[in-house]
Simulated assay, not measured.
Amino acid sequence: MKRREAREKAVQTLFQLDNTEMTVDEAIAYITDSPVNAFYESLVKGTIENRQEIDAVLKDKLENWSLDRLPKIERTVLRLAVYELLHNEDVPHRVILNEAIELCKQFGDEKSGRFVNGVLSKFEEK
């Protein structure tokens, strides 16, 4: 599984986990077959495990929005991207931004990509 596909599946899994009673392992099993790709699993579990930190950082970057008011796909993509920005130092900042925009285009719409780009552009490049 290539990294782009892993991110796509991670968004699907995280989207499914948002406001459900499903466990992480159940959601992973629902989205992908065994054996589970390590990068994909690290994205999903890392985003879930660090969600409080991610949400706190996101709240500081959102202007005139609350996380609860965001459309679910934008919130999911932002959480995944912020997880990577904060905890995945081997991926360049620009790649994370581009991937997030592409995920929004795939799962959301043109406005989703612009909104997510605006939020993520507030993060300083490492």
Rank of each mutant, 00 (worst) to 15 (best):
S66I: 03
N64I: 00
G46C: 07
A56Y: 01
N50D: 00
Y30F: 07
T23P: 03
L70F: 09
N64G: 01
D109V: 05
V119P: 11
G113P: 10
G118S: 12
T76D: 04
R114G: 01
S121K: 11
Q52G: 02
D60M: 07
D18H: 08
L103R: 02
E8S: 11
R94V: 13
V116P: 07
P92Q: 08
K126T: 09
V77S: 04
E63M: 05
Q106C: 02
A27M: 02
S121T: 10
N117Q: 13
Y40V: 12
I48T: 10
E110Q: 08
E63C: 08
L17P: 04
W65G: 00
P92S: 13
Y83K: 09
K105Q: 05
P71M: 08
H93R: 13
E89N: 13
T13C: 14
A38M: 14
A29K: 14
A38P: 10
R51L: 09
K122C: 05
V95N: 05
D25F: 07
Y30W: 02
K61G: 07
F15E: 03
I31N: 13
G118I: 04
W65R: 04
I101S: 05
A6F: 03
K111P: 06
L58S: 04
E124M: 09
V57K: 11
R94T: 14
A6C: 12
L17W: 00
K59P: 00
V82L: 04
K72R: 15
L97P: 05
V82W: 01
E49N: 14
L103G: 01
Y83G: 02
E125S: 15
K2T: 15
R114Y: 05
A27W: 03
Q16T: 10
L70K: 09
V57R: 07
G113R: 01
E110I: 03
I101K: 11
K9D: 13
L14R: 00
T20R: 11
L85C: 00
L17R: 02
W65P: 00
G46K: 06
V44F: 01
H87L: 07
K122A: 09
E26H: 06
V57Q: 07
V24Y: 03
R3S: 13
N64D: 11
K45R: 15
V36T: 15
E21M: 00
L78G: 03
D25K: 14
T13I: 04
E5D: 15
L43Y: 10
D109P: 02
